[in-house]
Design a protein around this nucleic acid. Structure first.
Lengths: 149, 149
DNA sequence: CACATAAAGCATATAAATATCCTTTAATCC
DNA sequence: GGATTAAAGGATATTTATATGCTTTATGTG
């Protein structure tokens, strides 16, 4: 609702890379998509884009794959969102009005601003490193739970 | 980013009805879409839907149009969102994971929850009446500012 | 009753997001 | 150098959200 699926996939893939990949041990699309339960080709597309934008590096061929181009502690959530969705999402009016500001507010402006800006602040501060730390300690998860039939 | 355009249009249309329409003086699609700068036919569709769901009433023919079926003070923002987008938007995981809960959280869960639930609380409390009150006092606006060329 | 008005209903168009497939290119291994 | 592996690139498919147009039905007016 807040982030596009593309952003969600990008963030989870980056977390997976932060956890599993190094320049020496790269990780391929197949592994990422299988482990995170993501559509393979689409994930490939997204990773390609992240390479172009410089967040991720890649190498072709055997033992090829993806790995983070910079330390995970230097990549904020907002960096990723901006690269993938563009930076406008957190500026929009809650009611979609063309001009909505403190001086010409929509009736939802004040309430909405609090949450939108609060979330933006979190996204600007938290890095991929912060996120995976919780995964490392077992306090959080990035893999989907499998449905049992 | 948060609400679909459909919800945004619905909310603004309902506010317009609350301000301008009564059972005696109904308001047509043409007026609503012109005043609020919304796509006319699409707005018609949305209003139709709101009629079906019981939030709005309508009458055909000359002097026909739309008007609120219930007092504006009894329609919450969330009522509208639920009717238009379905009630699931405010339950989704911030990273789109299939299961994400306090016991099996994604790395964003705690931070995200605060804002998502906070906004949901506002949406559950605020009514169309609350929103238009600010418009009535001139402290807020529902009409788009016109671009001057 | 004929005519005008305005929503309802339905079919369709367009755009954007999401997803897949296939060919090409680069790297490694033998 | 030939075979294999894996990403890059580009074309295309599918789905969902957004938007429009046309026909039908109900209401009011002269």
């Amino acid at each position: 609702m807040m982030l596009s699926k593309t952003s969600e996939y990008a963030l989870r893939s980056l977390m997976y890379l932060a956890l599993q990949a190094t320049k020496e041990h790269k990780v391929g699309i197949k592994e990422i998509s299988q482990e995170l339960d993501l559509p393979m080709h689409f994930t490939g597309k997204i990773l390609q884009d992240l390479v172009r934008k410089g967040l991720v590096a890649s190498l072709k061929g055997p033992n090829g794959g993806f790995f983070l181009n910079h330390p995970a502690s230097t990549i904020t959530i907002m960096d990723v969102i901006k690269v993938v969705d563009g930076g406008e999402a957190f500026k929009r009016c809650g009611l979609g009005m063309n001009k909505c500001s403190d001086t010409h507010p929509c009736p939802l402006h004040e309430d909405f601003k609090v949450f939108r800006d609060g979330l933006a602040r979190v996204f600007n501060q938290k890095t991929i490193h912060d996120l995976v730390q919780e995964v490392g300690t077992g306090h959080a998860f990035i893999k989907n739970l499998v449905e049992v039939s």
